[in-house]
């Protein structure tokens, strides 16, 4: 399913956070959304999947404006992987994953066998079948992300929107999750912090700075030391990865007027910092 974004504006807390963003993501492509903290990545993603209503512009899925779709119809087209979890009400993993079938079913009655099959297939896909009867709260960070991703898969939508799904994961789990995401063959829009990871895992990169789209294209075309300096105010060196031959960035010196926090957030994988 092709996603088209036209002149999108979004406000948050009375402030214009997304400014006139135009974007097109072809069917089956993985779009990586990068940008510094506070650049509007989360807000943009929330508008793209219809959780928040934009203040201007349109988002279309295969030409259909999402504003014209009912909530349920929308939920059959796009799944949004959130980091939310309420510790007070614990649930077994299978039950949590089965929530993904809500847009396809009735409001009451037992889960059908087909629903359960869907959920188990998704758990298989993310390698978490053995966790089905475990309580979600008792899982490790990596297991949680895999289960939440399984719920998004269970929703069985052509479009996936993921907001920093690699947060809190060690490098092995980050790579594993991104490979799972690539393997789904759905249209994916994903916010990422690690530029090298984004370059490796995405078909396209969109760069957001202060709410505006500053660049969009293939990772090779978009990512460069000049852009990294301009957007992230970090000096970097591009090297060629000896094994894959792909460009790889080494981050070294801060530009003089840089705020220390921002560059820290980039050179180390950020933890718990999310864009408002």
């Amino acid at each position: 399913m092709k996603v088209t974004v036209d002149h999108l504006d979004a406000h948050r807390g009375g402030r214009r956070v997304i400014k006139d963003v135009c974007l097109e993501v072809p069917t089956g492509a993985v779009l990586g959304l990068i940008g510094p903290n506070g650049s509007g990545k989360s807000t943009l993603l929330r508008a793209l999947c219809g959780i928040d209503t934009p203040s201007g512009g349109t988002v279309r899925y295969d030409g259909i404006p999402i504003a014209s779709l009912g909530r349920r119809q929308l939920a059959q087209r796009v799944a949004f992987m959130t980091q939310e979890h309420n510790e007070e009400f614990d649930m077994p993993v299978l039950e949590l994953v089965l929530l993904g079938r809500i847009p396809h079913g009735k409001g009451f009655g037992r889960d059908s066998d087909a629903d359960i099959a869907h959920a188990q297939r998704a758990l298989d896909q993310v390698g978490a079948r053995h966790l089905a009867q475990r309580s979600f709260s008792a899982l490790s960070g990596g297991e949680r992300q895999r289960v939440l991703f399984a719920r998004a898969l269970t929703q069985d939508t052509p479009v996936l929107v993921l907001d920093e799904p690699t947060n809190h994961l060690d490098i092995a789990h980050q790579l594993e999750l991104l490979d799972l995401i690539r393997a789904t063959n759905r249209t994916v829009m994903i916010a990422l912090h690690d530029l090298n990871l984004a370059a490796r895992s995405c078909d396209e990169i969109a760069v957001l700075a202060d709410g505006s789209l500053v660049s969009h294209g293939s990772p090779e075309d978009v990512l460069g030391t000049e852009l990294i300096r301009r957007v992230f105010t970090v000096e970097s060196t591009a090297v060629t990865h000896p094994a894959t031959g792909q460009p790889h960035f080494l981050f070294d010196v801060r530009t003089p007027r840089d705020e220390p926090q921002q560059s820290n957030a980039l050179t180390t994988t950020p933890k718990g910092l999310s864009t408002p």
């Binding site: 796009v78 959130t82 939310e84 979890h85 649930m91 929530l99 993904g100 809500i102 929703q155």
Partner: peptide, 17 residues
């Protein structure tokens, strides 16, 4: 079922339609 989704969180419930 909708209440089940609400237990997880508002965003999760919204994205489930």
């Amino acid at each position: 079922r909708a209440l089940n989704a609400l237990l997880v969180g508002d965003d999760a419930a919204s994205s489930l339609g």
